[in-house]
Computed example of a mutant assay.
Amino acid sequence: MLAKESIISAESIGTDGTTTLISPTAIGSRDAVDPGRARRVAIPETVWRLLVPLLLVITWQAVSSLGWVNDFVLPSPAAVLQAYGELWQSGDLQAALHISLWRAGLGLLIGGGAGLLLGLAAGLSRSAERGYDALLQMLRTIPFIALVPIFVVWFGIGETSKIALIVGASITPMYLSVYHAIRGIDPKLSELGQAFHLSRQHYIRLIVLPMALPGILVGTRYAAAAALLALVAAEQINASAGIGFILNNANQFQRTDIILAGILVYAVLGILVDALLRHIEQRVLSWR
């Protein structure tokens, strides 16, 4: 009688939000009848994102430990970590990160800001679109690496050519995103602004910018990714500091472990910048 009452009284989670205990006997009988209803453990999204890279690192270490690959061709993850320790103790990594982030940040600020203003103007004015849209579309089709020789001729081999290359790579992604975001605004909102007799400034501030904000933030992410890609190419132009300088020195001394360490630094920077921009996007666009 007691067993029967415990099974009857131990119900599952109800639809009204109430929760009661479930006896082991009831759990076993329900799972045996319907295994699909067994409780599943929720795995966080971050774990799923890190699962494949972690498996790759484990495989990489196993291949290196078994001697299937020459250490000179592909050093083990442990050797790469030792290279990081060497660069950190000497202070080269900290100085290189500061210089590289400054180059990428300045180029993104100039290129992204110019692309934002040009996209706003072209999205709001047909005359501006006819004036330079074709030029920017042609610039978009040119690989930014192809601009390296001419930028060296124009700006020399100093910092100006490196910043100019990053600017050229980041301007078009921002321009295209902002332009299409503005042109994609519902025409009924424009009619609403006209019905309320909004001025040009109020129309841009109250309707255009809020509606185009998702496209602007997406364009910022694209422009940041392009800026980091251009940074890799820019720091190959006779760099005297930065991550590219470390890679060039490691190549001369045939330090494959340091080369891999520098490449992974670029990858981590890209992931961190994208994660930061995604976080900002979620906070700013929480109303969506």
Rank of each mutant, 00 (worst) to 15 (best):
residue 243 I to F: 04
residue 181 A to W: 10
residue 259 I to C: 08
residue 29 S to T: 15
residue 77 P to W: 05
residue 193 G to T: 10
residue 183 R to Y: 14
residue 244 G to N: 09
residue 65 S to Q: 04
residue 26 A to Y: 03
residue 244 G to I: 12
residue 148 V to E: 12
residue 189 L to H: 11
residue 19 T to D: 15
residue 15 T to W: 15
residue 42 A to G: 12
residue 226 A to Q: 03
residue 88 W to P: 02
residue 228 L to M: 11
residue 39 R to W: 14
residue 216 I to V: 15
residue 56 L to G: 10
residue 223 A to R: 02
residue 61 Q to G: 05
residue 15 T to N: 12
residue 277 L to A: 00
residue 170 S to P: 10
residue 71 D to K: 15
residue 239 A to V: 04
residue 9 S to H: 06
residue 23 S to V: 05
residue 12 S to Q: 15
residue 117 L to K: 07
residue 201 Q to H: 14
residue 92 D to I: 06
residue 150 I to Y: 03
residue 174 M to R: 12
residue 140 R to V: 09
residue 261 A to R: 02
residue 123 G to L: 04
residue 55 L to W: 14
residue 263 I to V: 08
residue 287 W to E: 04
residue 117 L to F: 08
residue 282 Q to K: 14
residue 92 D to H: 03
residue 188 K to W: 02
residue 169 A to C: 11
residue 238 N to C: 05
residue 61 Q to M: 03
residue 18 T to G: 00
residue 149 P to N: 01
residue 116 L to M: 05
residue 244 G to R: 01
residue 7 I to Q: 13
residue 136 L to C: 07
residue 123 G to T: 09
residue 91 G to Y: 01
residue 176 L to D: 03
residue 266 Y to I: 07
residue 240 S to P: 00
residue 243 I to C: 08
residue 61 Q to N: 01
residue 155 F to Y: 12
residue 146 A to D: 00
residue 262 G to Q: 06
residue 280 I to K: 02
residue 245 F to G: 11
residue 239 A to C: 08
residue 81 L to Y: 12
residue 222 Y to M: 13
residue 170 S to E: 01
residue 134 A to M: 04
residue 65 S to Y: 07
residue 153 V to D: 08
residue 119 G to V: 10
residue 204 I to R: 08
residue 205 R to K: 12
residue 138 M to E: 05
residue 124 L to T: 11
residue 18 T to D: 15
residue 177 S to H: 11
residue 135 L to T: 14
residue 96 A to K: 09
residue 31 D to W: 10
residue 287 W to M: 05
residue 159 E to W: 11
residue 144 F to L: 06
residue 124 L to Y: 07
residue 3 A to L: 00
residue 244 G to K: 09
residue 132 Y to F: 14
residue 178 V to P: 11
residue 199 S to W: 11
residue 208 V to S: 01
residue 152 V to A: 02
residue 205 R to H: 08
residue 252 Q to V: 13
residue 81 L to P: 07
residue 263 I to L: 02
residue 4 K to E: 02
residue 159 E to K: 09
residue 205 R to N: 14
residue 142 I to T: 15
residue 242 G to R: 03
residue 25 T to R: 05
residue 153 V to G: 03
residue 206 L to M: 14
residue 151 F to M: 05
residue 214 P to H: 13
residue 151 F to L: 13
residue 139 L to R: 04
residue 154 W to S: 05
residue 93 L to P: 09
residue 81 L to N: 09
residue 178 V to G: 03
residue 125 S to W: 00
residue 198 L to F: 13
residue 141 T to M: 07
residue 1 M to D: 11
residue 234 A to H: 07
residue 256 T to R: 04
residue 158 G to R: 00
